[in-house]
Nucleic acid binder design. Structure first.
Length: 785
DNA sequence: CAGTGAGCGAGCTTCCGCTTGACTT
């Protein structure tokens, strides 16, 4: 039995450290926190100094038992969780649940997984920092109070099962406010003028007018003038410009670049990075630090010198500037910079490659550019034509990596954003006109957030942590506050007026606007919840709320304040606020909009958020008649629906007539418009409207639905009706007595005999485990007892 | 997934941060 037990947070880390420390040390992992507040219970004693009641979560019980067993037989226990607030708390919880004695427990920390760093840590143990632990308890308790007192207010005032929290509610607010900006945005047209002039030898000089015109006439006037005028080079400015590489990746910047360059979602990036980490290719992927270990800087420097040459090397020490960073880890980098590529899935290769390039570039020399601006005057006009050129004198880090920006997504590069080399010119030189074009443009509405842009903004505000960015984004989607946009945009016509050879011609062109695929768009529920929270709980929804409490947590960590006092102060105000808002008797339901009266009956028509989402109500509850209700369709919203559109929703269900002696009905349900026939439902595709769908179209839907259902069944057996070979989402499988079985890869589904199927079913290893893990576990325990 | 919803009613929902599972029938 090893004399020393080392406990770290991550099992992959444990494996690596085990190799450094050898057989005198046993390295185990806590898999993160081992204790927390009860999941479904408030678990804080408000009247007793906010004493938290901690429990070991069910899925950690056996792990804790193992750790305890190992700790009992070890002479010294080394608590090596991360050096940040959460890590310190993990160490403290471990010491509590493992019942560790102070004399044989040592707290050690390191921010890089290298042998010297770990040996140095072992040489410099300390005690658990109680103040830092208290800061974590304050953070935990505050989040629980906010979440578990705010959410029930939403259940009461808006609809059940909603949620609110310090992080998620601000994330929704950012998205909701951006949407309001877009709704209030008025697009304005303008005309942009670009031109191609000819220098000596008929070399083309592309240039752009330094003024935009609001009116078409102004643009035409200029073009008319340019039919017969002279163009003179007025000024040439040449200046050197240097570009520096971006720092190595943190979680947030990796998510942003993987989104822009590889099109990965935030969750996808983390999944792929996790697998790269587990197979030892990269360092830890949840980090807010841009720091590289000195060992890493050394090997990266060698790599650059050997493959690119000394002049490409510039050793840089990066420092983290982001708000609230805790820097328990290194930046995300390859563990072996010598591995330019790795084996793995296509996604793993791409992400690794991105990380490799970014890491290398971060230690490379600046790029040296030469920018040239040429001002060209137009005789008889005050405006100038500007030609821009850019020449790379030394590529430096650009040789391997170029960071993109969010603006690049939307900039129309073909329309003149690109920089080029200019032909030689001199001041006073006259240029000839090849052509000049005035293009009608429209000011662009603000961009909606992509997942990665939202992460960037949250990080800037110091809200959320590397481990929560991806989960926060899924939470706000799971609560239906936000959806990922599907809109592919619409075509908009614009005009191009061209002057060429003293002739002005006009052309109409099309462009795609509002292409918002994958962007985050707030739902009605999201908008209503956000309006409610920002109105009644402005202090929690304040963009600076987290920063404010973080600085108070810092005071606790430095021992300047007691955590319970801090929380008491917060709670007194907050709880009063909660009580007041809960007691409000609002005339209308939160977010309700009165649309007017139904011309036919005179009854009031309103829209609001119902228990199952947005709905329209016809009639009032005070009325003798019960009100009628109808759900809004997916493309409609509480904020924008008109009285006419709302009333139309009550035209459902429509009867289309008899088909095969059964009524065909059209209606709008929970999952959108559908056709119902003989007890079967078929969704109506987006392109069709439930109001205008005809009998023939409905029949076609019913028939094609039958056909696709038929294709689902690949094989049945007369002797054994319960045995079926079915076509599922993941390919063919066998269904037998309510359970599913996978078909071994080498067998062909179409050729299976009944005996084959029976053999597959008999083989336990093919059985699918129940969808609910707890169900399986429960079954196992009952068997035992 | 399943096509609902004004009212007596029971009981449920929920936070943020650490960490990986087991799973693609």
């Amino acid at each position: 039995m090893a004399e020393n037990l080392v406990i770290v947070e991550s099992p992959a880390k444990a494996k690596t450290i085990q190799k450094f420390l050898g057989k005198d040390y046993k390295v185990m992992s806590s898999y993160g926190h081992v204790r927390d507040l009860e999941k479904k219970d408030f678990s804080i004693d408000i009247n007793n100094g906010f004493e938290p009641m901690y429990v070991i979560p069910e899925d950690k019980v056996s792990l804790v038992a193992e750790l305890k067993k190992a700790s009992k037989s070890a002479k010294t226990v080394w608590l090596a969780s991360d050096e940040d607030r959460e890590g310190e708390a993990i160490a403290w919880h471990l010491s509590q649940v493992l019942d560790l004695k102070k004399e044989n427990t040592k707290r050690i920390v390191f921010h890089e997984i290298t042998k010297p760093a770990i040996l140095a840590a072992i040489e410099n143990p300390r005690d658990i920092d109680e103040n830092l632990v208290d800061a974590q308890q304050a953070r935990r308790v505050l989040d629980r109070i906010v979440g578990f007192e705010l959410s029930p207010v939403l259940w009461k005032k808006i609809k059940p099962a909603l949620s609110a929290g310090r992080v998620q509610s601000v994330a929704v607010r950012l998205i909701a406010e951006r949407e309001m900006e877009i709704r209030n945005f008025k697009s304005e047209q303008y005309y942009r003028v670009s031109s191609e002039l000819l220098a000596a030898g008929d070399d083309v000089v592309p240039c752009e007018l330094n003024k935009r015109f609001a009116e078409r006439e102004q643009a035409i006037e200029l073009l008319e003038h340019c039919k017969d005028t002279t163009f003179t080079v007025d000024d040439i400015q040449v200046k050197p410009v240097k570009k520096s590489p971006a720092p190595p990746f943190t979680t947030s910047t990796l998510q942003q670049e993987a989104s822009r360059k590889l099109g990965f979602s935030v969750a996808q990036t983390m999944r792929v990075a996790q697998s790269l980490y587990e197979s030892g290719h990269i360092t830890y992927m949840r980090t807010d630090s841009v720091n590289l270990s000195s060992l890493a800087i050394g090997t990266i420097s060698n790599e650059i010198k050997e493959t690119l040459g000394e002049k490409y090397l510039k050793v840089r020490k990066w420092h983290t500037s982001s708000k609230g960073a805790q820097e328990a880890h290194e930046a995300i980098r390859p563990t072996f910079i010598g591995n330019h590529d790795i084996n793995g899935t296509a996604q793993e290769k791409k992400l690794y490659n991105l990380i490799w390039k970014r890491t290398i570039a971060s230690q490379m020399a600046d790029a040296q550019l030469e920018k040239t601006q040429v001002d060209i005057s137009i005789a008889g006009r005050p405006e100038l034509l500007i030609a821009n050129g850019e020449v790379v004198k030394f590529d430096g880090f650009l040789k391997v990596y170029f960071e993109t920006s969010d603006e690049d997504d939307n900039r129309n590069m073909a329309a003149g954003g690109e920089l080029h080399m200019l032909p030689p010119m001199e001041v006073g030189q006259q240029l000839n006109l090849k052509e000049m074009t005035a293009t009608q443009r429209f000011t662009q509405q603000p961009n909606r957030y992509s997942e990665a842009m939202l992460v960037k903004r949250l990080e800037e505000l110091g809200i959320g942590r590397p481990s929560t960015y991806a989960p926060t984004i899924s939470t706000i989607q799971a609560r239906d506050y936000v959806v990922k946009g599907e809109s592919k945009g619409v075509k908009r016509a614009f005009e191009q007026i061209t002057l060429k050879g003293a002739k002005i011609s006009t052309k109409s062109k099309n462009e795609l606007v509002g292409n918002e695929k994958g962007k985050l768009i707030p739902t009605d529920v999201g908008m209503v919840v956000n309006d409610f929270l920002t109105k009644y709980f402005p202090q929690i929804l304040d963009y600076n709320f987290t920063a404010k409490v973080e600085s108070e947590f810092d005071d606790i960590a430095e021992g300047k304040r007691k955590w319970n006092d801090e929380i008491q102060e917060f709670y007194d105000d907050f709880h009063k606020n909660i009580e007041e808002v809960s007691a409000l008797r609002l005339e209308h339901k939160v977010g309700e909009r009165m649309l007017g009266n139904d011309p036919a009956t005179g009854k009031p028509v309103s829209v609001k958020i119902g228990r199952y989402g947005p709905l329209v109500q016809l009639g009032s509850t005070d009325d003798a008649d019960k009100p009628r209700f109808a759900s809004l369709m997916k493309n409609q919203s509480v904020a924008t629906i008109t009285l006419e559109e709302a009333l139309k929703l009550f035209d459902m269900p429509r009867n289309l007539g008899l088909y095969e002696h059964e009524e065909i009905q059209v209606a709008i349900g929970r999952f959108g418009p559908y056709v119902k026939h003989a007890g079967k439902f078929v969704s109506i595709p987006k392109e069709m409207s439930p109001y205008s769908i005809t009998f023939d179209e409905a029949v076609q839907l019913i028939v094609s639905n039958r056909e696709s259902k038929a294709k689902k069944i690949l094989k049945t057996f007369a002797e054994e009706p319960e045995m079926q070979v079915l076509n599922g989402r993941y390919g063919a499988y066998i269904s037998y007595q309510g359970k599913n079985y996978r078909i071994p890869k080498k067998m062909e589904a179409e050729k299976l005999t009944l005996d084959d199927c029976r053999a597959i079913v008999a083989d336990e290893s093919n059985a699918s485990k129940g969808t609910k893990r707890t169900a399986g576990r429960r079954r196992a325990t009952t068997k035992k007892s």
